[in-house]
Nucleic acid binder design. Structure first.
Length: 224
DNA sequence: GACCAGGCACATC
DNA sequence: GATGTGCATGGT
């Protein structure tokens, strides 16, 4: 009898940790940088996001008060390397307005809010969808919520752990249901999935040498 | 030159 | 509720 999907997910975590070790995502950065990065990385490579963040830093704009006061056009110019810069400048401004309304412009003021209501409130911001909200909750605020992204979907579907048509919420429930509710573990697992995604689980899979190769999977050629 | 990258909002059916 | 489209830079 085959092992359960939940067991497979836990074994995959162990295999990835064995192969790559702790990722320590966003360790030296401030929660402010994490939030900005979460918005800028929407459908964009992290390399380009780093360039944009560096430009914000040089301009002294890694600061909510400064971002609030800068015209959207100037924010857009600063974040140009991240792509979709006009859209993302508005999204940053939307988040800033929300943060001042909710917590006086200080992320620390959100620390005591419970995950559920905070997630709902974040989702009310235009430009903050489910993945961005979960990334902010987990990586900036340390809340226990699993982050699903394109890599998560690809890995889970390639390994037949979920229906190929499954959406965000189903994937989130798959992982949260299989794992202990531990923010540190959710943090590591998501980061490890991104790592294996970048190295192996690409649109055209490179399964040879993948830490997850021993787990049953579809080969490249499947449109995933 | 095509394809891809840690999405999201909005229009339309 | 499902599907299609615009948004834009930089790497392969």
């Amino acid at each position: 009898m085959a092992q359960s999907t939940a067991e497979t997910l836990r074994e995959m975590y162990a295999a990835l940790m064995e192969a790559y070790g702790p990722q320590a995502w966003w360790p030296g950065e401030t929660p402010t940088e994490v939030v900005i990065g979460a918005i800028l990385t929407q459908n964009t490579s992290w390399k380009n996001v780093e360039r944009a963040i560096a430009r914000l830093r040089s301009a002294g704009a890694l600061d909510w008060g400064r971002l609030r006061d800068l015209p959207a056009e100037e924010v857009a110019e600063l974040i140009r390397p991240a792509g979709y810069f006009n859209v993302k400048a508005r999204r940053l401004k939307n988040f800033v307005a929300w943060l001042f309304a909710e917590a006086g412009g200080d992320l620390a003021g959100l620390a005591d809010r419970d995950v559920g209501s905070l997630r709902e409130s974040l989702l009310s911001i235009s430009g903050v969808g489910r993945e961005t909200a979960d990334a902010i909750l987990l990586y900036a605020l340390g809340k226990t919520t699993f982050v699903v992204d394109a890599y998560t979907a690809r890995v889970a579907k390639r390994h037949r752990l979920i229906d190929v048509e499954a959406g965000y919420d189903e994937l989130k429930e798959l992982f949260e249901g299989a794992l202990p509710a531990d923010a540190a573990m959710f943090n590591e697992y998501h980061a490890l999935i991104v790592e294996v995604g970048k190295r192996h689980c690409k649109p055209r899979a490179q399964c040879a040498g993948c830490p997850l190769e021993r787990f049953p999977h579809a080969e490249s050629g499947d449109e995933l």
